[in-house]
Design a protein around this nucleic acid. Structure first.
Lengths: 258, 258
DNA sequence: CGCCAAAACGAAAATAAAACGAAAATAAAC
DNA sequence: GTTTATTTTCGTTTTATTTTCGTTTTGGCG
């Protein structure tokens, strides 16, 4: 009953646009593709059947049931866990240090929590992080080049990777979309994954930050493994299987003080 | 629960008008929009729910409670010369073209005015411009790498220049801090000047945008000369001396329609 | 102050506009 | 010639807007 048909080129493109942007209206799709509305409707119907895309009157969005409303909606979603984690991470990061901060709402919360630090040097591929941090005169904010993803202001692409490879910094602060039960780190966009992997390579210490909800989410692209982290910051004890992995590799797990 | 709906085009326009004007009566709104009063009432009710707009009998105003204007709000507040110039520039730029947009509040106004275009490719070293444009799914926004200047979110430095040099685009939209009487273009930051010069080099057409106040300002670093522009957009006729220069080189001067 | 009329208002019914799905017609690929 | 993809057509459904009407607010005026 579940016909698994392969998507054509345009449909895959639409799928990616929806992932990047969170949602798309038919008007927006028509401004991108030179085909009839009816064809786009059909594409959306097919995507809705076979992917987490959901339709609404006038367009479609990336499945709300799992996650990923528009960027702004996500902002509101789980503020407690994120900001608690964020202040834990901030407390761990010393002044006068250098750090990467990559894409994700969790890392943005961390950026906000870092505003009381002094003399940080930050390299980021996250437009929002740059916006948050650049106004502090004693921070040096360096932004990577590349294409700006319309979903969340993430900067991705080959040149982003090349640029990041120039640096070797004290800390790499990495968020992640999903963590599998075996400790595999997963994300939605392969370009983002490439960037995150580079950040991990170029950091002396890798700080992985993820709230508990990430353990029950699915994503498609493999980024790495949780044991590549130097420290893991979260809001609740992770599932047993993951906990055991972290124990084996002696990776400290930081939970909120409370 | 809290119904979060996105605003339609007219509602966003009303919102902007209210921000610019401080307040609007229903009469004023009716003279702008060709819809029934009842529809406008409904729009105002929706705006009152979801934005800082507050209603009063006969109209609505921008929420008085929030006097602490964020950067973005301050930008919108001053719609005069800059946004007039901006819409002139936007009218000149065709769809499906590629452009550089550099640092400056005028160029930011232009970015906003470009939001109704389709399928633009934009390379920018301005954090605010990137923030304004990246959400449109049919726009491709590419941000240059480099250090973010804390004064205004401009991205400057050697790597910015190297990155920009990779591109050759249809239009280079350049703002400027000051224009001397002999037509010399001046700016405050030598790093920004280097970037602007590179943009000029790599553009097929150079669009210079500057309001009249720039003619009476002084700055230290020489960027180039007004005759390097292909088109000059401004709000009033420039001083005689400059006008003559532009005439000699047959550079079109675009003034507001009115 | 209290009363009235004009204007503004909200709720809901009526109408207009758009988005929709199914299927036929057309175009493209094989 | 057959298959597949896309566009066109058309009747239906959803959404947006206008109209209608009874109520509330506003600003005179006795």
């Amino acid at each position: 009953m579940n016909e698994k048909k392969s998507l054509n080129a345009r449909q895959r493109q639409i799928l990616q646009k929806i992932q990047e942007h969170g949602s798309l209206t038919l008007d927006e799709l028509q401004s991108i593709f030179d085909v009839s509305p009816q064809t786009l409707r059909k594409d959306l119907s097919i995507l809705a059947e076979q992917t987490p895309v959901e339709r609404f009157h006038g367009g479609a969005n990336w499945g709300t049931s799992i996650e990923n409303l528009s960027y702004q909606d996500r902002q509101i979603r789980n503020p407690d866990a994120k900001s608690v984690i964020a202040s834990e991470v901030a407390a761990y990061i010393p002044n006068n240090s250098s750090l990467f901060i990559n894409i994700g709402t969790t890392t943005e919360a961390i950026a906000k929590a870092l505003l009381n630090h002094q003399s940080l040097q930050i390299v980021t591929n996250n437009l929002h992080v740059a916006s948050i941090l650049y106004q502090k005169p004693d921070f040096r904010v360096i932004v990577a080049s590349g294409e700006v993803r319309s979903r969340d202001g993430g900067i991705v692409g080959e040149s982003t990777i090349d640029f990041i490879r120039q640096f070797r910094l004290d800390y790499g602060i990495v968020g992640i979309s999903a963590i599998d039960r075996d400790g595999t780190l997963l994300d939605y966009d392969y370009r983002e994954v490439r960037v995150a992997q580079t950040i991990v390579q170029q950091s002396r210490e890798v700080i992985l930050a993820a709230d508990y909800s990430k353990f029950s989410r699915k994503a498609m692209v493999e980024m790495g493994h949780i044991t590549q982290a130097s420290h893991f910051f979260t809001d609740q004890l992770p599932p047993r299987t993951v906990q055991r992995l972290l124990d084996q590799k002696q990776i400290p797990v930081h939970l909120p003080a409370r």
